[in-house]
Amino acid sequence: MGESEYLNESVLELIGLRKRFGDHQALEGLDLKVPAGSCYALLGPNGAGKTTTLNILLGFIEADAGTARVDGVDVQANPAKARTRIAYIPEQVQLYPRLSGFENLEYFHGLGSSEAEPAARLRDCLNQAGLAEGDCDRRVAGYSKGMRQKVGIAIALARRAPVMLLDEPTSGLDPQAAWELNNSLRSLAKQGVTMLMATHDLFRAREVASRIGILVNGCLQQEIDPAEVAGPELEARYLQEVQQALGVQA
């Protein structure tokens, strides 16, 4: 197998995913592939089905139809095995309020990996995520939303998984932290980590992603190579897609 072939191989593969909640069709045959070592940004209005897609990849909800593969593992068949390949930053990072940020990281990380990690490396992850040194050992009960988000990012970074799923990772982050996160993601991609990121931040998506998909009503409307479009044009195309799709529906 040649190197270029390997790079083109899809680590995340979604084929014909469908999911219905009651009488609402959340996903309507979603096809999506993310090659190894690249970052895919999923844009779309609220309720488009971004979180649902990530939930299916995590095995938290079962798709009605279609296949989801993570690093070659069929999620429906073996969700536990698929999860061992994934690091995940949820839409809302939830932590144990009575533990400190560091203790939370230590706990989540310790449970997720078989080998013990030196405390110094875990602290590095917190720093990399942008949490101030002085905040690491305070109880999470006193954290701001962005501080919690940073701990969530640190948990995902520490995991060193081949796949990273991010659900609006920059929500609540100050610009400085968002910028640092983008740097981290770019260096992760260089290390071969495959990323799928749901986001509303067009600007950051263009900076970090190697491919952008616009999801509306559970359907991928358009895929864009960010290298080929400028910021304003991306926004225009996004708005056009959304309005068109919603207009068609109405």
Partner: peptide, 17 residues
């Protein structure tokens, strides 16, 4: 309720554990 169970499971922790 808090959502930490989700995060635990996402870490690949077996629920029985």
């Amino acid at each position: 309720e808090r959502g930490t169970l989700r995060q635990l499971l996402a870490q690949g922790v077996r629920p029985e554990r």
